[in-house]
């Protein structure tokens, strides 16, 4: 079984700590994650909004490159890239004429032999993860899945489209206490971070408000867009809400790395806008 790695553009830039923490965890687990050769951008929201062919062609070239390299599965940690690759694979496998046309467009034969894996699927399949925990991540956490990890259900075939549980189970494995809360799969505003920051501040503010109201000490995310909006857009959220939120937003791989005893710097925690700190009062309250 050969597993390839599709980082996507944001993990090389604004979300580099997601990539750093994933690779640090993978190294500690003894897993090799070779990148898909000469990968390109998946097209993200822009391509499917503006150009239907491009929205299929860009992911098809990525998947075809992974297949050519003999990869049986491709780990796609960014939930937005995961969605675009999953949708493309689903649509091309359902329509032979479309598969041929798009294959011709990208000058490579997409066959669909490489599965698309999200970060939770990849982590959940690692046996004995509990045994790797050296410093239990004993925090009350709000697991924030966002939209695209779990929807559309018929395309991603992963967990429940609302009220999913897989990330909660992973958090339990590392000693955290996942909370019941209402915004697990509500949208953060995603790609409007720059063009409609006002709407992102509104939607992401609602998410933080519920997490804080339920006593969460951290929001756990599995998507660079979710992180960008909940962390880097914090000043915009606070200006709109008229109040401060101190709750840190942590990638699932960072929480795992901390539990495995990896140094915070290797996990890129210093790159966050909102400091990853847990007030003493909060840690006392966690015994409840």
């Amino acid at each position: 079984m050969k597993t390839g790695f599709y980082p996507g553009c944001s993990m090389k830039g604004s979300a580099r700590e997601y990539s750093e923490s994933l690779l640090a965890v993978a190294a500690a687990l003894g897993r090799d994650l070779p990148e898909v050769p000469d990968w390109n951008c998946c097209g993200a929201t822009a391509a499917h909004n503006l150009d239907p062919d491009l929205a299929l062609a860009l992911p098809a070239r990525i998947l075809a490159a992974a297949e050519k390299e003999g990869m049986d599965e491709v780990l796609v940690p960014c939930a937005a890239c995961y969605s675009r690759l999953s949708v493309t694979r689903h649509e091309l496998l359902a329509d032979e004429a479309l598969r041929r046309r798009i294959s011709g467009l990208v000058e490579a034969d997409f066959r669909g032999s490489a599965r698309v894996l999200n970060i939770i699927e990849w982590l959940a399949a690692i046996p004995g993860l509990e045994g790797m925990v050296k410093a239990p991540f004993a925090r009350r956490v709000a697991c924030y899945y966002g939209c695209l990890l779990v929807r559309p259900a018929g395309v991603v075939n992963f967990d429940r489209p609302e009220e999913p549980q897989s990330m909660d189970l992973l958090m339990k494995k590392i000693g955290a206490e996942p909370l019941d809360w209402a915004f697990k799969t509500e949208c953060c505003g995603a790609g409007f971070s720059v063009s409609r920051t006002d709407l992102v501040a509104k939607l992401s503010g609602l998410i933080l408000e519920d997490a804080v109201a339920r006593g969460a000490e951290a929001v756990i995310v599995a998507c660079p867009m979710c992180h960008l909006n909940l962390d880097m857009r914090r000043p915009n959220i606070e200006r709109r809400a008229g109040k401060k939120y101190h709750i840190p937003v942590i990638y699932i791989t960072q929480a795992l790395g901390l539990a495995m005893g990896l140094p915070a710097k290797k996990l890129g925690l210093q790159r966050h806008k909102v400091a990853v700190k847990f007030p003493a009062a909060n840690s006392a309250a966690k015994d409840i």
Partner: peptide
């Protein structure tokens, strides 16, 4: 206008380099 401008800027970047240059 702004939403569409952002999408167009995104695809321009991908067309030039193959990956998004933020």
């Amino acid at each position: 206008r702004d939403i569409i401008a952002f999408h167009r800027a995104f695809l321009d970047s991908v067309r030039t380099t193959g990956r998004l240059f933020e």
